[in-house]
Write a protein that binds this DNA or RNA. Structure first.
Ligand code: MN
Ligand code: MN
Ligand code: ZN
Ligand code: ZN
Lengths: 157, 157
DNA sequence: ATTGAATATGAAAACCATTATCAATAACGG
DNA sequence: CCGTTATTGATAATGGTTTTCATATTCAAT
């Protein structure tokens, strides 16, 4: 359909081959979009961005690829209360740092924050340990989101 | 369609009348279901429970009522990663205590926990204050969820 | 208790993000 | 280059939620 990308071997090459997955054009295109963006993209956002470069890649493949990337733990999937899932490269990948989110209930703006994270993590570890013991529940990850009004929406509200 | 419930004036009477809303049979039935359950019910769960007593009340009304109750801050709406929204009486209402959630990724079980909450709240207040200043973001509420495997699913997994 | 205006409801259709189907295509070891 | 098999794209289907609109209910004023 089109020639393989001319890039040097990308950092994610091994992740795919090691997992027994093929390194396809669609998957690379989707990872490129995610890697270039600092936003929290929906499947359609990603589809449209990919579409500009590879018009033949369909929305179905975007969904399937995102599902795979989430399963491979290369991508986080979020629900911020609008009706669509949102995706973001996982921490560690592309130098992304662990962070939590502020979500504006009015305009949907999403802010990453890394401040206070250290103390939060400390408490989380403590809490996770306690919960693990009390409920014998093996915690694998957590979601922390603050909802409210961003600066603009406070003025306009 | 059917006679008004014979209950004494319920605690939520004032909340409705004060907001300019009518105190209908459907709304009371739905609040009764929520008040009696300690689970995290979906719209359909609530519809089925209501249906046993008032078969004429439709699913649409359940959705509309839940939307209203969330807007009135009498009910919390959650997304636990299954495909449906889940509802729970808000803290303070019916003596409900503020709590966070453990969600089993395998079987979907949801556990409320109130332990560690005090320390969490303390840190949250601190964090919220900091975020408020740094981003001029007015925080109204937060979501904290831990995902993992419950005791049963660890054995069976 | 009756009335009437405004709100709330139910049945059905519409919506829309996500998934399933399936024939065609591309990736890659040999 | 070939053959096997994973992957893809177009399309249809799914399913929770929302919209529509005619009818019923609530409740303040009679
Ligand atoms: Mn983020
Ligand atoms: Mn709960
Ligand atoms: Zn905003
Ligand atoms: Zn479980």
């Amino acid at each position: 359909m089109f020639n393989r990308m001319q890039n040097q071997i990308p950092w994610w090459h091994g992740r795919f081959r090691g997992g027994g997955y093929r390194l396809t054009v669609a998957r690379q295109a989707i990872l490129n979009v995610l890697g270039k963006s600092d936003k929290h993209l929906s499947a359609e956002d990603i589809y449209l961005a990919v579409h500009k470069v590879y018009p033949a890649i369909g929305l179905t493949t975007v969904y399937r690829t995102l599902e795979l990337l989430v399963q491979m733990k290369m991508v986080f999937k979020f629900d911020f209360g609008d009706k669509r899932a949102r995706y973001e490269l996982a921490e560690g990948v592309q130098g992304t740092k662990h962070h939590h989110h502020l979500v504006c209930s009015a305009c949907g703006r999403i802010i990453n924050y890394t401040d206070f994270i250290d103390k939060e993590i400390e408490l989380l570890n403590q809490t996770e340990k306690g919960l693990q013991e009390k409920f014998n529940f093996k915690i694998t990850n957590h979601i922390i989101q603050f909802y409210g009004l961003c600066d603009k929406c406070q003025k306009n509200g």
